[in-house]
Amino acid sequence: MNEIFSNPVLAKALPEAIVETLQMVGISAFFTVLVGLPLGVFLHVTVPGGLRPMPVVNRIVSDIVVNITRSIPFAILMVALIPLARLLVGTSLGPVAASVSLSIGTIPFFARLVEACLRDVHHGKIDAAQVMGSTRMQVISKVMLPESLPALVAAATTTVVTLVGYSAMAGLVGGGGLGKLAYNYGFQRFDVTVMIVTIVLIIVLVQLIQLTGEWISRSLDHR
């Protein structure tokens, strides 16, 4: 215990690393939901037989954009997107820059989860909404999204947990945060204390996210 408090690296760099990790996860989670949710809705409603079938556009977005992005390993995608981060935020270093590649890496993942959640909404409910005179937007906003909300929250939870893992990787190429701390001090300087503390912190963070997500999802579920 004493070693933890007397460790100079932990005392100096740990608070900053925690803040950086939370920044990366927070910013990229925000943008992932902001873009991934509409993208998932789009993927679901444009399939043949969907609410607004657009088979060709759906194929292009689904196969080319989503599948290709998802098939690139995150470690590679991250490095490949450094120029884009520089273009968007002016720098390739720091948690904000890392959030660019983090968001782009998880948006297609989240969109796929959203698509699956919406597919699980019983078709009879969509029929009922259409028969009572809903517009397509009303079917989406008043039936599809509210009816799948518990599942959507669970999907978002899974995505944020994935982001915590990715953010540690992003730390290695300039993102900072707990990943960088563990690598620089724990691995390269053989500081076992730093390594253990960061691992424990990441585990605690993931647990907190998972438990909170499950609690919200349960409290929204009236089935």
Partner: peptide, 30 residues
């Protein structure tokens, strides 16, 4: 469509809405 009210085999109610919310649904649309 609003001139025809429809009753389904499995009611097809919205699980996220209360009884009152479900009945209010068609009126919210307009």
């Amino acid at each position: 469509r609003r001139r025809i009210g429809m009753v389904f085999q499995h009611a097809n109610l919205m699980d996220s809405r209360t009884a009152a919310g479900n009945v209010a649904h068609p009126m919210e649309l307009v």
